[in-house]
């Protein structure tokens, strides 16, 4: 079934306007529409579901408060996502300090395709690996890989040096590589 993008956009605009007017039902509709993706984003930045729920809750309140400022120039989903990521950063800054991790042994992965790994491990397994990272690594890894931010930008946002960002990112990847390898061994 084809979905007319114009109608979808109109509906989204109407929904946003209703939310600005304070219509609670519309707000709940907006929440239902975006919560799966936004919660997944917050899960990646959090250690567990409880933390993610706390962040996504704060994020949605912020979204409803800030709706008037949405300029409708870009994607609404991207705008919400930005706010969620900001809330994750804020949460991270209020909860944790940067903790460098030492003594990481590099482990060579087997030469297999990513699709195969995803198929064999599953998304939940990958999510758990990210969540298991130390907070700083997880934050930097997420910002670099999923938000496609540069190390300079990450450093500015987190109040750290660019070198620290690069170093932590590298260590995060090593950790994940090792975790994936271990999981594949178990899966065999």
């Amino acid at each position: 079934m084809l979905v007319n993008p114009i109608n979808t956009l109109d509906k989204e605009t109407e929904l946003i306007q209703s939310c600005i007017d304070g219509d609670r039902y519309s707000q709940s509709q907006l929440y239902e529409l975006f919560i799966p993706k936004m919660f997944a984003v917050c899960l990646r930045y959090s250690k567990n579901r409880e933390d993610a729920e706390e962040i996504v809750q704060e994020g949605f309140v912020q979204v409803f408060k800030s709706l008037r400022s949405f300029k409708k120039e870009g994607s609404f989903e991207a705008w919400i996502r930005k706010i969620m990521v900001y809330c994750c950063i804020k949460h991270f800054r209020s909860k944790a300090k940067m903790h460098p991790v030492v003594n990481i042994e590099s482990i060579n992965l087997e030469e297999i395709g990513n699709e195969d790994i995803i198929a064999r491990l599953g998304k939940k397994e990958l999510l758990k690996m990210v969540q298991a990272l130390p907070p700083a690594y997880r934050m930097i890894f997420n910002l670099y890989v999923f938000e496609r931010m540069k190390h300079r930008e990450i450093a500015e946002q987190l109040g750290i040096s660019e070198g620290t960002s690069k170093s932590n990112f590298f260590d995060a990847k090593i950790s994940l590589q090792r975790a994936v390898a271990n999981s594949l061994k178990i899966a065999k």
Binding site: I35, P36, K37, F39, A40, L43, R44, R49, A52, E53, V56, N114, E115, I117, I118, K123, L126, L127, M129, V130, F141, V145, F146, L176, V180
Partner: peptide, 14 residues
Amino acid sequence: LFRNGLEDNEELPS
């Protein structure tokens, strides 16, 4: 691997 695996992931909260 992680970008492909988790970028479009969807989860439902409580």
